[in-house]
């Protein structure tokens, strides 16, 4: 009996597709055989599009008790191919890989989720379980920034979230449209508009690296301890289990030791150019 080959994906079928914006879709995936593998929010899977290639994509959660959700933005050949998939199509999936958002550690205190762009997808996978066990947390706030109102993701769900009394939602865009009534500007600027007790807060941040660096600085400025700020990093990766060498960041492998890192562990590395 041969041991399993870690490079060989399992086959999944697209169960449903939800268009989130002009260039972004959420794919609901079900395994052709067996169960959806157990995962924790913040982890990622490698998704393979037939003949095109494979990319890491964070889990954006489950669809109720249904399929595994991945939200994909069409930016390169593989993500474009994934965004073209239709219900019934087959794709390769392997995982989960990487470190999760430390939700259990955040229990009993306030929780800040700070998302930039597509970074909302991995944070959705943290927000949903936190809302499902709402009583375990103090205040919860979601701060979300996108390039423009047309780029905002999870529209219907977000309006549900905004209507909740037990969740503060702050949304901002870089460039407003004429109809936009919300705030304009960068996400870190919304931190000062958010209600939380810094000393008992955990902050999970996911977005472009520059946005995460400024968010971390703003959180530190507000008094959140560096060991309670968590960032989800991204680098080129091919294997997802620390043998292709590509995602090294200092002595860490982002695929294995990350993608979710405590800020105190990586702040020095983040300050180095072209590391």
């Amino acid at each position: 009996m041969r041991s399993p080959d870690p490079f060989v994906p399992s086959l999944f079928r697209v169960d449903r597709v939800r268009r989130e914006s002009a260039d972004t879709v959420t794919l609901g995936l079900l395994p052709i055989q067996g169960e959806i593998p157990a995962f924790r929010s913040g982890q990622f899977f490698m998704l393979y599009a037939f003949g095109i290639g494979e990319i890491p994509v964070s889990v954006s959660g489950l669809w109720g008790q249904g399929p595994l959700l991945h939200t994909v933005r069409a930016v390169g050949p593989v993500s474009q191919a994934l965004c073209r998939l239709r219900p019934g199509d087959t794709l390769g999936v392997r995982g989960p890989y990487g470190s999760p958002w430390p939700l259990p550690q955040a229990e009993g205190g306030d929780l800040l989720l700070i998302a930039g762009g597509l970074g909302l997808a991995p944070l959705r996978s943290a927000l949903l379980p936190a809302l499902a066990e709402r009583e375990r947390y103090g205040r919860i706030a979601l701060l979300y920034g996108a390039r423009s109102p047309a780029d905002l993701l999870f529209g219907e769900e977000r309006s549900d979230w905004s209507s909740r009394d037990d969740l503060q939602v702050e949304v901002t865009v870089d460039h407003a449209s004429p109809a936009w009534r919300g705030s304009v500007g960068v996400v870190p600027a919304r931190i000062s508009h958010t209600r939380f007790a810094p000393e008992r807060t955990h902050a999970f941040v996911c977005g472009p690296e520059v946005m995460m660096r400024y968010s971390a600085a703003a959180l530190l400025g507000a008094g959140v301890p560096p060991a309670r700020i968590f960032l989800s990093l991204e680098r080129n990766m091919k294997c997802a289990f620390a043998v292709c060498g590509r995602c090294q960041f200092g002595s860490t492998f982002i695929c294995r030791d990350g993608p979710v890192f405590a800020y105190d562990r990586i702040s020095r590395l983040l300050s180095l150019r072209e590391l």
């Binding site: 037939f50 003949g51 095109i52 290639g53 494979e54 091919k238 294997c239 043998v243 292709c244 060498g245 590509r246």
Partner: peptide
């Protein structure tokens, strides 16, 4: 040295 890449061919 162990770094690698992958290529997909159709």
């Amino acid at each position: 040295c162990f770094c690698s890449t992958v290529e997909d061919h159709t």
